[in-house]
Design a protein around this nucleic acid. Sequence first.
DNA 1: TTTAGGG
DNA 2: CCCTAAA
Length: 610
Amino acid sequence: MVSQTRLEYGFIGYQVPVFPRASRSARVRVPNRKKSGNNEKHAFEILVSVAGDFLQEGETFVPPNCKKDQQNACKNLVLKEQEDESQSSKCNLSDKETYNEKTLSGYHQIRTVNKFSHAPDRFNLKPYSSLKGFDKLANVSGRNANHSSELGISSLISGEFSEGQFEDAGAELSIIQTVKSETLQPTGSLDALEMDCKPPHYFCSGSKTSLFKDWTTLGPSRHSDTIETVSRDDNGNYVADQRIKNLSSSRRWRVSPNLNGGASFRNDGKRRKIFHDGRTSYSRQRSKRISPLKRRDFFNQCPFSGSDRGFQLDDRFNSAADKRGDAIRVASSVTSPHPHPGSRDRNVKLRIKSFKVPELLVEIPTTATVGSLKRSVMEAVTTVLGDGLHVGILLQGKKVRDDSKTLLQTGISRDGKHRNLGFMLEPRHAQIKLPRCLGEQGITSHATSFTLDPRTSSIYLDPPVAGCINGAQRDHHLVPSLPNISASTTPLPNSQSVVSVPAISVETLAVVPIHHRAGRREFVQRRMRRPFSVSEVEALVQAVEKLGTGRWRDVKLHAFDNAKHRTYVDLKDKWKTLVHTARISPQQRRGEPVPQELLDRVLAVHAYWS
DNA sequence: TTTAGGG
DNA sequence: CCCTAAA
């Protein structure tokens, strides 16, 4: 059993807008961080996130406690986002109600949550300025405004945070739909249950109307104990599916800058999470959950196989290749960014038959299973493909650098001879990072790393999962397209060689793409454990005696400058453990014994500096 | 980046 | 050692 700290937040009395949408309580895992004092902020973020699920396209949720200019910033941001989105999906918007185009300012007030609150706490969410905004929504939407504008639907957000799971499992941050109603209780609990357990089409935009009807037919009834039908996230697929749908439904909601001033809203993703961590977490989860499928599709469509110079092209036009759907789409997306509908003749269709991944560094112990090797390579490949590469165009051996030229001007046309057209996957960043070196000072010299060099080795992956990385020397000219090859089921004939894993032994299992990108935590291996030697402890104690306990960078520079593997954080950590060690009885100590004399000095220094 | 602390 | 909020 996993011990869980429990943290509950919720909001009650939410004034449901003109027509009710998915009315539900949500159960959200909230990391319970005592130290940072961010419970309040985080809970609010979660709250906003969930509130976002209540909102419709065009509605805005503005943090209530921020200043006027920040609110304006919020609105501007929302407007801009909506503008961007409507431009990117204009045709989708056109057949929706016009309220999509309008922005509704639904201000809400929120009661402050106690910091560090472990007990259930509640928010009160009320319209900031009556229901004015919602009325406006009613007008533009043309829907029946008489219904349910007074419904008080309670929603509860409760958080359960199981330590260590929040980040890692990727499945822990979840919103689980349920029905919880106070002033609106369904006429029969069975109905409620059914609603609750219905598949997630409640969240699909297309079924809003039916949802609305469902709710209005239920009608209000006495205020009573709430019904809460919670599907916990260990309930399996239902929850998972629902979660995904839920995510897609929340795609619509708008965010506003954070409470602390809204300064951090860069678009690099890292900062965005400051305000609406909940939502960002959903996004992360979404990507974790869904992207593997997409990746798989992608690999099915684009098998790796041996191309020494880059992509292999299939230049068939408007032929049976059309029927290949996905594969063609991949190709045309590369070659025809601006297709002319109805004028297919002007299009050039280029099919990428195969390509190689430039270089991968794999470190894997001999005790690893073949399956783990496959997974490792797969992960590495997907990482590289993620966004560490850009595409280069090679025409008759020469790089095409001018991106502004048309294909016609460049000489890539249906009629032209583009048999020497090639694509290259190149590192996005000019600087080529060297493979990580693990063998430091002989400590890890038994570790062997090898490079999967396409020219000398190849790795074959299960076809349903991925294509192949193949290093067979091949003519970089076009090869005849393989008729009817199904990339998803049949490996290319020339890509079936299996790499023999070199005899290596290291206690790590890691794949490090050579052009590794930051932020891919799942591929970052833990550093090797390197216990401090007595002499190191001696040096540390001496340095701290001189410099104190708050200047770890200086300690590092003074005493460990040439020990690359000891960071100032390490030194700080070691000092922490030293203090601890000094305080416990010798029987409880582990590892290489530290002389008592040193430990005494540790205690003395620690007492002095604190 | 560095500090400070919890995990 | 890891992770990361704050400074």
